[in-house]
Design a protein around this nucleic acid. Structure first.
Length: 318
DNA sequence: TACGCGTGGCT
DNA sequence: TAGCCAAGCGT
């Protein structure tokens, strides 16, 4: 367990003690206070939360966790850090090795971008993951969320960390609706900033705690309101948990798409230690037009390197 | 802004 | 069982 245990600085002890006895007065506490207290008692012991993970471990985990469940990330994360314990170690590898080690995590462009980020960290930052939000944002594969997450989790900085978990928690607890909008809105960002604790370390704990609450309690389906530390003040619960009303949440089709074909093609190349002939790739999909389009896309994305004589492989060193 | 991008477990 | 969903990013 690594959940910080310091007293909560922005809520003076006397105030907290007084209000804790008044269950009808929870609105007077900042939202982060009960959530952080819950987190300190219930946080999962994840490897990237341990001190030895360092900023590089945090960054690797954030790339892997983009749209991918924790349980699937765990084994790949451990192998990755054992093989490439520092950014420079990964930067020295061919990008194709990152794609191969990515395995079946999905969205393999993330592997390529993580490799690119390692190269950039090595070249521009002396091999140390930067703590500055703008410098993080400039790295390939690092967007607003990941920059804020790395700065917050690895360096204790104060940023609004707005991922799908936090967005859902705020949608329910504050806005009173079941789900946040499909795309992050300016209103959500304003709300997240308004809830940010003033003190840096408290803000960082709130970021981790609110994400964990969304991941474990305030889940998309089968939420556990009876175990929620802010159930008493949750706008959605108070309103009787009305079901989502509005435009349908964007789904993801997969069967028969280029994505599926790309996945099959890349699986062949991941498994091969030597370049593969065109015929081996042709075998994974019947329909030639879509098959060619998928392969072209992989080449255009830099995930596949075409060689002479119709041979293909994962990308080598430039 | 909306879409394309992998994979697999869960209900 | 067929969607739904999972710590988003780049264009």
């Amino acid at each position: 367990m690594t959940a910080p245990t310091q007293p909560e600085p922005s809520a003076p002890r006397d105030t907290a003690a007084r209000t804790a006895l008044r269950t009808d007065a929870t609105d007077t506490l900042p939202l982060h206070t009960p959530v952080i207290a819950w987190f300190e008692a219930n946080a999962r012991d994840l490897p990237w939360r341990r001190p030895e993970a360092g900023a590089w471990g945090v960054m690797v985990s954030e790339f892997m966790l983009q749209q991918t469940p924790v349980n699937r990330v765990l084994p790949v994360y451990e192998q990755w850090l054992a093989r490439w314990p520092r950014p420079a170690d990964l930067a020295a590898e061919a990008p194709g090795e990152a794609v191969r080690a990515w395995g079946r995590l999905g969205y393999p462009r993330r592997a390529l971008r993580l490799h690119g980020a390692a190269v950039a960290v090595t070249e521009r930052h002396g091999g140390e993951v930067p703590s500055d939000h703008a410098e993080l944002l400039a790295l390939p594969g690092v967007g607003e969320y990941t920059a804020a997450a790395v700065a917050s989790f690895a360096f204790g900085r104060r940023h609004a960390v707005l991922d799908t978990n936090v967005r859902r928690v705020l949608a329910r607890a504050v806005t009173g609706v079941q789900y946040p909008p499909n795309a992050t809105t300016a209103a959500e960002r304003r709300l997240a900033v308004s809830l940010l604790p003033a003190e840096e370390g408290t803000a960082a704990r709130w970021a981790a705690a609110s994400m964990e609450l969304g991941a474990l309690i305030c889940t998309a389906r089968n939420e556990s309101c009876h175990r929620c530390p802010i159930a008493a003040r949750c706008a959605w619960l108070r309103a009787g948990k009305p079901e989502h009303d509005g435009p349908p949440r964007r789904g993801q089709t997969y069967a028969g798409t280029d994505r599926q074909v790309r996945g099959k093609l890349l699986a062949v190349l991941r498994a091969a230690e030597v370049p593969v002939p065109q015929a081996a790739l042709d075998a994974v999909w019947e329909e030639p037009v879509q098959r060619a389009r998928a392969l072209d896309g992989l080449v255009a994305d830099g995930l596949v390197e075409p060689l002479a004589d119709g041979m293909y492989r994962l990308p080598g060193r430039p």
